[in-house]
Design a protein around this nucleic acid. Structure first.
Length: 762
DNA sequence: GTGTCCGCCATTTTT
DNA sequence: TGGCGGACAC
C-alpha cells in the first residue's frame, strides 16, 4: 500500500498541524472541503463533544442520545479538519461489529480517508497489531497464532496433566477462568498476589499459570487474554516504545468505556499519558459486563484519573417516549454507584409501560404471541419488535408457542458462527495447511473424520514431539512407520493430503482450496452421511464458510482475519420478531419490546445476588435499565407466578424491579386466569404491585387491538403424504392440512402442527 | 479405537 | 428435562 501515512513508518511525521503549522494548515484547508457541515443537526451538547478535541473528555451518553453519531462525527471532524492523519487516531470498540459500523459511518461522512484508519478496531485487534510489530520483545516469533477458548482449554488440560493435577477436583475450565480473570486484571504469573496464586489446584494455581504461559510461548501462540496483557507488559517495560506510540496517537477515542476491564484501562492510561487527547464515551448505567471483568469504577473515576477532564452529558433522548424513559430512569435511580443523569424524551409521552401478570410461563408466551399476531394483523412489522429475556432457557416456551401458531421469529445470539464445531474443524484443516506446526489445530482434526488414529497414538506423538522439540505434525511424519497398521494407513493418507493441499495453496483461491479440502478429507462426506436433523445445518454452515472466503485472495489473509473476526451474521431476511437475551440487546432498539420473566430469582438472577451481593443487584438493575430503554414506543413487562425450570415447577414472586417502577408511568393489565384460575395473591403480598392493581382497573383485552381482517390462507404448495424437512424437528410426512397449517408426523419428534412457511420439501 | 452409559450441571458472552 | 464429558466395556 502506498499510503504514506501508514503506521509502518514509525518516524512519527508531524501531524497535519491544526493551527500550529501555518503552511500545512493552509494547504490542508485548501485541499479539504469545509468540515463545518458535519456539525449540522447536532444539539449543543453533541456539538461540544465533537469540538472539544484537546485534553481528556468523558462523554456520558445516555441510552438513545445519539452517541454513535457524536463518536463518528468527532472522528470525521478531526480528520476533515486536518488535525491528524487517519493513522494517528486510535479508536477502540469492544466488538468487531461496533468497529465495522463505526468505520462504515465515518466512511459515509468523509469518504475514503477512513481506509487509513488502521488503528480503529477492538481492543484485541489493536493488541494483535502491537504484538505483531514487536513479537520478539514479547518472547514470540512472527506469525504467532491466536488460540480460541477451545484450543486454550485443550492446552491447559495438557499442562495440568503434566503438573499432575487431578482434573476432577480442579477442572481445567475453572482454571481457565482464573487465568482469564488474571489477564483481564493485567496480572502476569509473576504479579500474582500470594493469596491468589495459592487459591486453586491445591495451592499450585500460580505454578500452573506460569507453565501454561511457558507452553504458549513454546508453541508460539497467545490466547485472547494475552492480546491485552502482552501489549501492556511490552509498553511498560519498553519506555522508548511507549513514547513512540504516545506520539503516534494524537487522538484516542474509546467506545463503551463503562465496559473496560483493568488491563484495558491500564493500557489506555499508559498510552494517554498525562496530556493525551483521550475521549471516552460510555454510560455507567449501562455497565452490564462486570461478571467478565468490566469495571464500572473506570468510568466513575474518570475525572480523578485524568485531571482537567471535561465531562459532557448527553441527555436528550431521541429514541423512546417519555413514559418509557420515566420508567427506566426511576428504576435506575435506585442504584447508588452512578454518576447520574436525566434523560429527556424528544418525541413525546406515548403509551405507558405495560405491566402484566401471568399464571405461568406458557401463558406468558401465549400472551406475547397473541400480541405479536395482533400487531402484525394491524399492519405492524415483526422486525420492529423484540422479546428480551434474562436467560436463554426462557426462550423455549416462547419458541414453542411461536412455532405452534406459525409466528416467524429469529433467535439472536447462541453459539457464534466461528464457534460451531463444523466451522472450527474446517478452520483447523486450513490452519494446518497454512502452518504445519499449529499443533492444536492438527490434533483437532487428526481423527476427524475417523481414520483410526486414536488417543493413544496421538499421545505417543505428543511425547515424541515434545522430547525432540518438534511440532506434532513433524512427529507424525517421523513416527509413521512405528504406528499400528490401522493408524498408519490413516495417517499416511492424511499426511499425503496435506502435502498435496499445501502444494495447491498458491495455485487456487482460498475458497476453492477450502472446498477441495472439505471434499477430499472426507469431512463434508461425514456430515452428508449423518442423518440427524442438525447435519443439514452443519453443511449449510460449511458452505457459508466457503462463501465467506471468497473475498480473500490468500489463505493467510483469510486466517488472519478469522482469528479475530469471523463475522458471518446470518442474513436478516423476512419479517420476524427477534428473541434474544437482554445482554445481546444492548445497543439495539425496537418499536415494541416484550420483557417477560420479571420474577425474583430469575431477574434479578439469584446467582448474581449470591455471588456479588449488592454490586450484583445493581448490575441486574442496570440490565433492566438497558432492557427498558431498548423500546421506542412500547414496553411490555410481564412475570409469571409459576415457571418451569429444568422441568420442575417453581413459584416465584414478582421482581423487586417491578416495585421500583413509577406507578404513574405504568399501566397494569391482567390476563385472564390460566386453567386453574388466576389469583394474584402472591402479588398482593408484595406491597408494590398491589398498589398498581388496586389503583387501576386492570384491563383484560389484548394489548393491541387487531383491526385488520384475518389473514387469508395462501395456497399451500404441499400435499398430504409429502415428505418435508423442518429446521427444528427434522424430517416428517404431512398427514393433514388446514389452510396453511400442516399436521406433520415427524420421524423423531412426533406429530405437530406447523405453518407451511416453516417447512420445505425434502 | 469406538460405542455406550452414567452422572453432573444448568446466567449473562466477547475477543 | 437435556446436553455434555468422562469412564468403562467391547
Amino acid at each position: 500500500m502506498a499510503d504514506p501515512f501508514d503506521l509502518d513508518d514509525f518516524d512519527d511525521g508531524p501531524a497535519p498541524a491544526g493551527g500550529s503549522h501555518p503552511l500545512s494548515a493552509q494547504a490542508a484547508a485548501a485541499a479539504r472541503p469545509d468540515p463545518s457541515p458535519l456539525l449540522e443537526g447536532l444539539n449543543p451538547e453533541q456539538r461540544e463533544a465533537v469540538l472539544h478535541t484537546e485534553g481528556p473528555l468523558l462523554v456520558l451518553a445516555g441510552a438513545g442520545t445519539g452517541k454513535t453519531r457524536v463518536l463518528t462525527t468527532r472522528l470525521a471532524w478531526i480528520l476533515a479538519g486536518g488535525m491528524a492523519w487517519p493513522g494517528q487516531i486510535l479508536a477502540v470498540t469492544f466488538t468487531n461489529k461496533a468497529a465495522r459500523e463505526m468505520k462504515e459511518r465515518i466512511g459515509r461522512l468523509i469518504g475514503g480517508m477512513v481506509e487509513g484508519m488502521t488503528w480503529l478496531g477492538t481492543f484485541h485487534s489493536i493488541g494483535v497489531k502491537i504484538l505483531q510489530r514487536h513479537a520478539e520483545l514479547a518472547g514470540l516469533k512472527s506469525g504467532f497464532s491466536i488460540l480460541d477458548t477451545d484450543d486454550q482449554l485443550r492446552l491447559l488440560k495438557q499442562v495440568m496433566e503434566a503438573e499432575k493435577i487431578d482434573e476432577k477436583r480442579h477442572p481445567a475450565r475453572q482454571m481457565a477462568g482464573l487465568i482469564d480473570d488474571w489477564k483481564n486484571r493485567g496480572l502476569a504469573p509473576d504479579d500474582l498476589p500470594e493469596t491468589e496464586a495459592g487459591a486453586f489446584a491445591g495451592g499450585r494455581a500460580g505454578t500452573v499459570y506460569a507453565s501454561y504461559q511457558r507452553r504458549l510461548k513454546e508453541i508460539n501462540a497467545v490466547d485472547f487474554g494475552d492480546l491485552l496483557l502482552e501489549p501492556l507488559r511490552l509498553l511498560r517495560s519498553n519506555p522508548d516504545l511507549l513514547e513512540e506510540y504516545r506520539r503516534r496517537f494524537r487522538y484516542m477515542l474509546v467506545d463503551e468505556y463503562q465496559d473496560t476491564n483493568v488491563a484495558q484501562y491500564m493500557l489506555l492510561r499508559l498510552l494517554a499519558g498525562k496530556n493525551g487527547n483521550i475521549c471516552c464515551v460510555g454510560d455507567d448505567d449501562q455497565s452490564i459486563y462486570g461478571w467478565r471483568g468490566a469495571q464500572v469504577e473506570n468510568i466513575l473515576r474518570f475525572e480523578r484519573d485524568f485531571p482537567g477532564a471535561r465531562t459532557i452529558r448527553l441527555e436528550r433522548n431521541y429514541r423512546s417516549t417519555a413514559h418509557i424513559l420515566a420508567a427506566a430512569s426511576h428504576l435506575i435511580s435506585h442504584n447508588r454507584g452512578r454518576l447520574g443523569k436525566t434523560l429527556h424524551s424528544q418525541i413525546g409521552d406515548g403509551e405507558k409501560v405495560v405491566l402484566r401478570a401471568h399464571w405461568d410461563d406458557a401463558e406468558e408466551a401465549r400472551a406475547i404471541a397473541d400480541d405479536l399476531e395482533a400487531l402484525r394483523g394491524a399492519g405492524g412489522r415483526l422486525s420492529d419488535t423484540a422479546v428480551l429475556v434474562r436467560a436463554t432457557f426462557q426462550m423455549r416456551a416462547l419458541e414453542e408457542r411461536f412455532i405452534e401458531i406459525g409466528l416467524p421469529y429469529r433467535v439472536i445470539g447462541g453459539p457464534r458462527f466461528y464457534e460451531r464445531m463444523e466451522v472450527r474443524d474446517a478452520l483447523a484443516y486450513l490452519r494446518v495447511i497454512h502452518s504445519p506446526d499449529h499443533d492444536l489445530a492438527f490434533e483437532r482434526i487428526i481423527n476427524v473424520p475417523k481414520r483410526g488414529i486414536g488417543a493413544a497414538s496421538v499421545k505417543k506423538m505428543h511425547a515424541f514431539a515434545r522430547m525432540r522439540g518438534i511440532s506434532l505434525f513433524r512427529a507424525a511424519e517421523l513416527m509413521l512407520p512405528d504406528l499400528p497398521a490401522r493408524a498408519r494407513s490413516g495417517l499416511k493418507a492424511l499426511l499425503a493430503d496435506f502435502a498435496r493441499w499445501r502444494a495447491q495453496v498458491d495455485a487456487m483461491p482460498p475458497s476453492e482450496l477450502a472446498e477441495t479440502v472439505l471434499d477430499e478429507s472426507g469431512y463434508a462426506a461425514m456430515w452428508k452421511s449423518d442423518n440427524s436433523p442438525k447435519a443439514q445445518g452443519r453443511l449449510e454452515n460449511l458452505k457459508e464458510l466457503v462463501r465467506s472466503m471468497e473475498e480473500f485472495d490468500t489463505l493467510a489473509g483469510f486466517l488472519e482475519h478469522v482469528s479475530l473476526v469471523m463475522a458471518a451474521d446470518e442474513a436478516a431476511d423476512g419479517d420476524r420478531v427477534s428473541v434474544m437475551t437482554m445482554h445481546a440487546a444492548k445497543g439495539l432498539e425496537f418499536d415494541t419490546v416484550f420483557l417477560p420473566g420479571w420474577e425474583e430469582g430469575l431477574f434479578p438472577h439469584q446467582r448474581a445476588l449470591d455471588e456479588t451481593g449488592e454490586a450484583g443487584l445493581e448490575e441486574e438493575r442496570r440490565l433492566a435499565y438497558v432492557a427498558i430503554t431498548r423500546a421506542k414506543r412500547r414496553a411490555i413487562i410481564s412475570f409469571a407466578h409459576n415457571r418451569r425450570v429444568h422441568n420442575l415447577w417453581q413459584t416465584a414472586l414478582p421482581s423487586r424491579f417491578i416495585d421500583e417502577l413509577p406507578p404513574e408511568h405504568v399501566e397494569v393489565l391482567r390476563e385472564d386466569a390460566g386453567p386453574s384460575g388466576f389469583s394474584p395473591s402472591p402479588v398482593h403480598e408484595r406491597g408494590g404491585f398491589a398498589g398498581y392493581g388496586g389503583a387501576r382497573d386492570p384491563g383484560t383485552g389484548p394489548l393491541i387491538e387487531a383491526r385488520a381482517e384475518p389473514r387469508r390462507a395462501e395456497p399451500c404448495p404441499y400435499e398430504i403424504g409429502q415428505r418435508i424437512f423442518h429446521q427444528k424437528f427434522g424430517y416428517g410426512i404431512i398427514t393433514g392440512m388446514e389452510g396453511d397449517r400442516l399436521t406433520i408426523e415427524f420421524e423423531h419428534t412426533g406429530t405437530k402442527r406447523i405453518m407451511a412457511g416453516f417447512v420445505k420439501a425434502a
